[in-house]
Amino acid sequence: MSKNVIITIGRQFGSGGREIGSMLAERLNLPLYDKNLVELAAEKLDISEDTADSVDETALSGFLSTYAYAPGTIMPYVGRVDYLEPINDKMFYAQAGIIRELAKKGPAIFIGRCADYVLDGKAECLNVFICADKADRIKRTMELFDLTEKKAADKVKKMDRERRYYYETYTGKDWGSVGSHDLVLNVSRLGMERAAKDLELIYKGMIED
């Protein structure tokens, strides 16, 4: 009898983790949740999608931009000082709730957003981390965003730093380590197609076990 298994994919920037998730979703006929989680969280929080996107998978936003209310907003007087919850935290908890609800509906693939941690103990998961050699990630970023090598290298460094801090801030675990994931795959060694194919075989073995 087939079991419901969730696939979570963490990834270094420029490694192709999102593309591997898309290939895997097509191979396995599973729903894929990535940027669409931003739209769902924005709707839940009643904020603009642009605002939600600006703090998605980051805990490093500037002081003023991390609050749900714009500077100068007059808050209702309640007789005491209220400390506003950073919108980064609001986004994390909103997406976490959405991920748990979606996971209850059946098998799916979740990209990033600490989904492995969010679903720990609440669903059977295959937790994967996708990495690649830095030179390959810079080259891929140059091609995808039409950047110079220097700007691509800076973007890779910045995005990796933000994703690491985001993951470790909310989970207390090491981002990208074998201790935090079931599988760590280097796409520079395997290639995207091979990585997707291997994950497909592993997943099928899990649901039929």
Rank of each mutant, 00 (worst) to 15 (best):
L30W: 01
D82W: 02
K139F: 13
A123H: 06
E43Y: 01
G191K: 06
E162G: 09
G112F: 09
N4R: 12
G79T: 06
R194L: 10
P107H: 00
D53F: 06
V55A: 02
L201M: 07
Y93W: 14
I98R: 02
F129S: 10
D198T: 08
E85S: 09
D154K: 15
C114F: 03
A42T: 01
N127I: 05
C114M: 05
K151L: 15
D53W: 09
D136R: 13
N4A: 12
M23K: 12
L32K: 03
Q95F: 04
S65D: 15
G72K: 11
E124S: 13
P107Y: 00
E149W: 12
A115W: 01
V118F: 03
D116S: 14
I138A: 11
E193K: 14
E124K: 10
E101Y: 00
G16E: 06
G17C: 04
C131P: 04
R18D: 06
N29T: 05
P86E: 07
I98G: 02
L183N: 06
A52V: 02
K44Q: 11
D160C: 14
K105S: 05
M142N: 11
Y170P: 12
T58A: 04
A52F: 02
I99A: 02
R194Q: 10
S15F: 00
F92S: 03
F92R: 00
T148W: 15
R11M: 07
M91E: 03
K158V: 13
D136S: 15
L30G: 00
G121C: 10
V128Q: 11
R27E: 10
D146G: 10
G179V: 11
Y165M: 14
R189T: 12
S188V: 08
W175P: 10
R161P: 03
V156I: 13
